[in-house]
């Protein structure tokens, strides 16, 4: 089975949300700024709970922000 990858558009949504800072997103999503940085770099895949908290900050749907690629 091909290796699956989860990509995200957090950086784009963050800029579209009035150029929200990573710090602000981290505080509102309940994680550290370091975790936001790593997610935007594609080097960390969040848990489902954190993913939902992030998309809630943007007022978007989870499939709009995160993408499952096989």
């Amino acid at each position: 089975m091909a290796k699956a990858e989860i990509r995200n558009k957090i950086r784009r949504f963050r800029f579209d949300a009035g150029e929200m800072t990573q710090e602000e997103l981290a505080e509102r999503a309940g994680c550290t700024r370091q975790t936001i940085i790593l997610m935007e770099q594609g080097r960390y895949v969040p848990s489902l709970a954190l993913a939902f908290r992030i998309v809630r900050v943007f007022g978007a749907k989870i499939e709009d922000v995160f993408e499952y690629v096989e």
Binding site: E23, A26, E27, G30, C31, T32, R33, Q34, T35, L38, Y44, P46, S47, A49, L50
Partner: peptide, 10 residues
């Protein structure tokens, strides 16, 4: 102090 000190990744 504001902000999250440790999260799921930590």
């Amino acid at each position: 102090a504001g902000g999250v000190v440790t999260d799921e990744r930590d």
